[in-house]
């Protein structure tokens, strides 16, 4: 387990390093940041002035080293637009996004796993078909459109929930449903597949041959093994949720990091965008690292080896 953890950690660090390079150079590969900041009407002199002012005229690797060494200390520079330290800006927005993603994940797990289990227990039954329909529709539903529909429905036609903003917990209900619904199908399908596979395993037959209660067979012997892959996918989905939060937060005007990303991208606020790409990616790296460990811990074949 220790060797395993160490290996995973090294991998995670390597990925983090690569991503820091990517997220930094991405903006340079994509075009001239000075021109982008200056705007379309700027003259060549103005662009040149911005270039020297922000230090874009220096070699990229030097800029990267400077950026990354500061970033390690938690300093991502100042936001061009908001005029405050990027770190402070992001920290002030993170709670909203984490609340949203966390509650959406909880929603997806609470809906997805039981539905997957039921669908696997009664394959081809009505419940299975309903679950499958929900899953298939979920894949095809554009999240922003679904969000708008819910806003129309519950914000105005049956006005029981606030349509936008992030002032109270009620503001999080609709975004949670939208974001959570998006992750539900994959968790549900995976639980169903895992359960079907596990239920036909020899050790389930052994458990039944021992005369164990059906609930013991189901929860102790089957579900435990079936959820192992669900754990890692849930972590991946959580990462996707952070990405998806850009769209959802924009639609619902929730002032989290996703909304911040959209704002700063529109305003060519480089330090913020770079920092956000790195933060989002690192979040994902940490999540997969944790899920790998959790997986290993759940599976004795990895844990005790």
């Amino acid at each position: 387990m220790l060797v395993y953890t160490a290996k995973r950690l090294v991998l995670a660090l390597l990925v983090a390093f690569t991503i820091s390079v990517l997220s930094f150079s991405l903006l340079f590969l994509a075009g001239d940041p000075a021109a982008a900041i200056a705007g379309e009407t700027a003259t060549d002199q103005e662009i040149e002035r911005i270039r020297t002012m922000f230090g874009f005229d220096r070699p990229i690797w030097l800029q990267y080293l400077e950026w990354v060494s500061r970033a390690i200390q938690g300093d991502f520079g100042r936001s061009y637009y908001f005029g405050m330290p990027v770190t402070e800006l992001i920290l002030s927005r993170i709670p909203v996004t984490l609340t949203l993603a966390g509650s959406a994940m909880a929603f997806a797990l609470v809906v997805g796993i039981p539905m997957g289990v039921i669908a696997a227990l009664y394959p081809n039954s009505i419940i299975d078909r309903i679950a499958l329909t929900i899953a298939v529709c979920g894949q095809a539903l554009p999240s922003f459109w679904f969000a708008l529909m819910l806003i129309v429905l519950f914000g105005f036609m049956i006005p029981i929930l606030p349509p936008s903003g992030s002032d109270s917990w009620q503001h999080f209900i609709l975004p949670t449903i939208v974001l959570g619904y998006y992750a539900t199908p994959s968790l549900m399908r995976l639980t169903r597949t895992g359960m079907l596979e596990v239920l036909s395993a020899d050790y389930i037959r052994t458990a039944r041959a021992k005369g164990l209660f059906p609930r013991t067979v189901l929860f102790k012997h089957a579900l435990r093994n079936a959820v192992i892959p669900v754990v890692s996918v849930a972590a991946v989905e959580f990462g996707f949720m952070l990405g998806g939060s850009i769209v959802i937060e924009t639609v619902f005007a929730l002032h989290g990091t996703g909304y911040l990303a959209w704002e700063s991208i529109r305003r060519a606020d480089f330090p913020t965008v770079q920092a956000l790409i790195l933060v989002f990616s690192l979040f994902y790296v940490v999540l997969t690292f944790v899920s790998d460990l959790l997986n290993a811990w759940l599976d004795p074949r990895i844990r005790v080896a």
Partner: peptide, 23 residues
């Protein structure tokens, strides 16, 4: 495999938005 891992870590929408906004 390493490249896949790196790619998966980067949020598609965010990167796409940023690049499209720049170019």
């Amino acid at each position: 495999t390493f490249l896949i891992t790196c790619r998966l870590s980067m949020p598609v929408i965010l990167v796409a938005l940023a690049v499209v906004a720049l170019i």
